[in-house]
Every structure is written in structure tokens, then in C-alpha cells.
Design a protein around this nucleic acid. Structure first.
Length: 127
DNA sequence: CGCTTGACCGGAA
DNA sequence: ATTCCGGCCAAGC
């Protein structure tokens, strides 16, 4: 397993938390998505970053403050990742109205579109 | 001091 | 659809 750590661990974790905090109620994001929203730290090869970042996100959430909606971060398959505590992530999401189909969430429907992203997606060329 | 163990992901078979 | 693989560090026991 690749476990390259970010140069400034604390700093990176903070960025993760900031982003996760922005995920709206009833929406979800994937580990990889959060990772991509954070710029590759200096001194890290883009390739290494791609290979490791999603895990950094997971590790960051493992140590996140209690006011962070960690339950809204799921894996790329739309599933709940195994956690040390066995947890109630699924329950929390259900409580937010997220629908599970065969233990899986429909990402197209529930995935958060990012922080700066448009609340009004520009579809097609309006011209 | 050494061994174990991580909230992941995408591609290939 | 499912399983396997590479990625190769550091904190904790």
C-alpha cells in the first residue's frame, strides 16, 4: 500500500475538514473527490498524490473534530467504507434522507458538486 | 526496536 | 459482477 504522507499533515487535514464542512445536508462526496479539490502539496509528485490522497482524506476524517459531517464522505463506489468503530454512518445518512439501494448510494443523484461550483450548472452551450 | 495496521482508488483478469 | 494488485509511510503497541 502506498502511504506517502503530506508534508504538512496538520495543514492538509485542516483543508480536508474545511471542505467536508461545506458538504450540504443530504449530499455526499467521495474521498477521491475531496482529494482532488485540494491542490497537490509541494514536494509531492502528482502521481503519488493521486495514489495516496484519497487515503489521506480518510485518515484526516479519522481524526476530525466532532462538528465535521464526516458521514457525508463515502467511497467511489457509493458505499460506506469500513471504519474502525463499525459505525453508524449509514444511519446518519438515512436520517438526512439519503436513499440506499443495495447498500449503495446513487452518486449521480446525491454527489455534492464542489464548493466554488455553480449552483446553476451551465448545461450545453447557451451561446 | 520490530511488527501491525490503516475512513482509498482505478485498472486488469 | 467480483477479486486481486500496486502504491511502499508512520504512529502505536
Amino acid at each position: 500500500m502506498n502511504f506517502v504522507h503530506p508534508p504538512n499533515k496538520q495543514d492538509y487535514y485542516t483543508q480536508v475538514w474545511e471542505l467536508v464542512q461545506q458538504i450540504p445536508y443530504g449530499k455526499v462526496a467521495t474521498y477521491g473527490q475531496i482529494a482532488q479539490l485540494i491542490p497537490c502539496p509541494e514536494g509531492i509528485e502528482a502521481q503519488e498524490y493521486q495514489a495516496s490522497a484519497s487515503r489521506w482524506v480518510g485518515t484526516a476524517l479519522a481524526a476530525c473534530p466532532k462538528d465535521i459531517p464526516w458521514q457525508r464522505v463515502i467511497n467511489s463506489q457509493g458505499r460506506i467504507s469500513q471504519r474502525p468503530d463499525g459505525g453508524y454512518q449509514r444511519e446518519r445518512l438515512l436520517a438526512e434522507g439519503v436513499v440506499f439501494i443495495k447498500e449503495r448510494i446513487s452518486l449521480p443523484e446525491y454527489q455534492w458538486h464542489g464548493p466554488g461550483q455553480a449552483s446553476h450548472p451551465v448545461q450545453g452551450s447557451l451561446f
